[in-house]
Design a protein around this nucleic acid. Structure first.
Lengths: 136, 136
DNA sequence: ATCCTACGATGGACGCAGTCCAGGTCAAGA
DNA sequence: TCTTGACCTGGACTGCGTCCATCGTAGGAT
């Protein structure tokens, strides 16, 4: 994630304090923050940062393929910095905890031609559900 | 779907004009309407029906297992009357069209123990994405 | 080191999806 | 037919996200 700002600068991104702080907040493994959580954490380091800027920056990072957007429930979208390694998600129905997981094989293999209705199928998103150890 | 009202009556549901109309609107295959679409169509038959009632009725049908809630994008939830046969969804990235599909095997088989993080995994939701014939 | 300016940040208004509530209505059993 | 508790209504309200006019500043040019 530390090279992220360099990569983006090379792509013509203007590096501002706000963008740097948002990128820093998103650093780590199994990180799946809502925009609001990103804003709260970013504001600890840069109190004047606005919600609009957080939304704009997250949107740009998603468009650039550096961050993935995840919507596991009908609630707020979550932002996942682990966008370079393809993976799926395992969500706890009790507390909402999310883990990145890598299932075996390609889910596309499981969809036979007669179930494709003439679509050109390009991808599959899998969300596993269950209870985490703390939620029994 | 025609026995639905009978089944629910036996379960203590009071059958009202509003509930009947919502159930009728949801009848069919590959039906994935938003709450708002259900309200619009229901209002053609019963003009005074309120949004709140549509939301309440949809919520009850979901709780009773008669209708499935589907959220394919970050937008409005969709309601799928095909809740008795397990299936997944294929969504067109162009126009948003949705088909019910039945992939081979059980997606849970593809998640090895070392990727379960101690969770008790109970289910998986798969959303295939692609372009439908009309969207090339 | 300083200037310029186009790109970025701000915050407040706005919109959509969904929930809540107090009061009026009615399905269905007695 | 009467009664009553479950149901419906409409409007206010919340959460999440977007839009926009205006102000600020990163970074190339000098």
């Amino acid at each position: 994630m530390s090279d992220l700002l360099e990569r983006l600068r090379e792509r013509g991104w203007r590096v501002t304090a706000q963008r740097r702080v948002v990128a820093e907040v998103l650093d780590g493994d199994h990180v799946h923050l809502t925009a609001d959580q990103v804003h709260t954490r970013a504001a600890l380091r840069l109190p004047e940062i606005s919600r609009a800027t957080v939304y704009n920056t997250l949107g740009e990072l998603v468009a650039l393929g550096e961050v993935a957007e995840v919507s596991t429930d009908g609630r707020a979208k979550r932002y996942d910095p682990n966008a370079h390694r393809p993976h799926q998600h395992l969500v706890c129905s009790g507390c909402g905890a999310i883990r990145d997981v890598r299932p075996l094989g390609d889910p596309l293999d499981r969809l036979p031609a007669d179930q494709r209705y003439g679509f050109t199928v390009s991808g599959a998103v899998v969300t596993y559900r269950g209870l985490c150890p703390s939620c029994v």
